[in-house]
Design a protein around this nucleic acid. Structure first.
Lengths: 133, 133
DNA sequence: TTGCTAACGTTATATTATAACGTTAAGTGG
DNA sequence: CCACTTAACGTTATAATATAACGTTAGCAA
């Protein structure tokens, strides 16, 4: 059905590991720089791995940041739409999937007969900790 | 209170006109190319105007496209969060503001004590016409 | 006028992403 | 095992998007 990844290639694994070890989102070039020591040489190596990982739901792209994060759920098999709260102060990203949000948005989509393939929901601002400070 | 634009400068007006006359979203460089005949020479002229127009709610940025559209409501004083449905086939963009979506998302935000400054909601897929074809 | 600020024009450069090419490696059916 | 097909790879080059930094100009107010 949906595009699963059966086994990760070496490059895909290295990119995924890098994102998993990262504290926050990373740009493709930041990933590349990390992986130069492992032999990576050029952007396409990173972008190709990212594409596959995103297809498999293992990695998400943050559109408003042009950056990437590992899926917090390991692989994203959540029923609903995935959303992100991004703190502009500390850079923390919370991935969440809220039933009410999913319902209201899918409701709009079906009411308007739109055939949805991808949804981007990103909240930018200050996380509770940074908002308090 | 919120950052309004009192009067548009010449550059801002030209950029806004260009977007208003466009059938769909435009990249900053597409705008620049349009406006070269009017004397524009370099990207910062476009980006600076876009920044101001976005501050005033006259223009929106489509994060998933790295492109810009004029606000469909003239200036965006809608109560709720603004969202976009983007057709990947024909390029059409529908700006909308749905009460249920706004409520569910602001609800998540307040429940999670997030201080929201900007929200991105973009639905990619096929519009009704293109989905039918 | 003087001083202040926002906007401007310009050059240069940073950052993000992909095209295109030939090569290697990993299945698959015979 | 071999021939074939396809996905992934490495590499070079370049495209597309965005901003830093500088000095200048224009609008406005004391």
């Amino acid at each position: 059905m949906s595009a699963e990844i059966s086994v990760l290639t070496k490059n895909q694994e290295m990119v995924l590991d890098t994102l998993n070890q990262a504290k926050g989102p990373m740009s493709a070039y930041a990933i590349l720089d990390e992986l130069r020591r492992e032999g990576f040489r050029a952007p396409p190596q990173v972008y190709r791995a990212l594409d596959k990982l995103m297809q498999g739901g293992l990695v998400h792209r943050l559109e408003s940041l042009n950056a990437f994060v590992a899926c917090s759920h390991g692989a994203c098999h959540k029923a609903g739409l995935v959303a992100f709260a991004i703190c502009d102060k500390c850079g923390a990203v919370s991935e969440f999937s809220d039933e009410a949000v999913t319902k209201s948005l899918t409701n709009w989509i079906s009411k308007n007969q739109f055939r949805n393939t991808k949804t981007t929901i990103e909240i930018r601002g200050d996380c509770p900790q940074c908002a308090a400070a």
